[in-house]
Design a protein around this nucleic acid. Structure first.
Lengths: 115, 115
DNA sequence: TAGCAGTATTCATTTTAAAACATACTGAAA
DNA sequence: TTTCAGTATGTTTTAAAATGAATACTGCTA
């Protein structure tokens, strides 16, 4: 009798540089929410994440990328905000492309898993 | 001028079934250490992991696999021990095979990363 | 020049996860 | 029938991480 339990492969990927993990899906989501909302504050709310943490993630990304991914607008009308740089837009796109290729490949490996 | 920062892709994968994550590299290491040492206790020591946790992982694996991956020997000479079943051996092998194929693929994607 | 809303940062608090501790159970062998 | 080392399990402690609160700063606009 053929056993019926279903198993499949999940994959998580991230970009690493010399100092360690640099950019994973969590930071990508944050970038996308900053693009969508125009500020770190609102992006954090959207994600039910503490502003403090969101701000730290942005700081880290900007420091470790060759050029900043997020541009911060301090003060002024509306208090300021944040928006993606060209490099930030590119990062989102590159990450999703690579992620898709790897996940598609992984899915093909899901055949015949048995435990 | 060509910028020189080096980025590369890291991949983590695991097997999922209906109730969630089932088997990742951590449990595979545990299985390998059980095979090597002949008991959950010694495997845990080897990995500097609490026996309690190692035992829980084994319990979970056994419950959620179609057939147990680890056979427990209770009491008797030496107090007992634990060893891999045929399914346990197979699980290690399958996982490593799939992992290698996916990581090899991912490595090819590492070209041209720029952030 | 006062108001405003978001960024920047520190500090205390809470939540969560991991580890440590303690103790009962098992069964072969001496 | 006592010893022994490993399994089995609940309880307590500790450590780490996330969150929340508080405060200063920024610079456009009214």
């Amino acid at each position: 009798m053929m056993s019926n339990k279903k198993y499949n492969i999940e994959v998580r990927l991230w970009i690493e540089e010399t100092e360690g993990p640099f950019l994973g899906i969590g930071k990508i989501w944050l970038l996308e929410n900053i693009r969508k909302t125009g500020s770190i504050t609102n992006a954090a709310k959207e994600m039910k994440m503490a502003y403090r943490q969101a701000w730290q993630l942005v700081k880290e990304m900007n420091q470790r990328a060759e050029s900043p991914l997020v541009e911060k607008l301090l003060g002024g009308k509306g208090g300021g905000g944040a928006r993606l740089t060209e490099a930030g837009e590119k990062a989102i796109q590159t990450f999703h492309e690579v992620e898709k290729r790897i996940k598609d490949f992984a899915e093909k490996e899901t055949q015949n898993l048995k435990f």
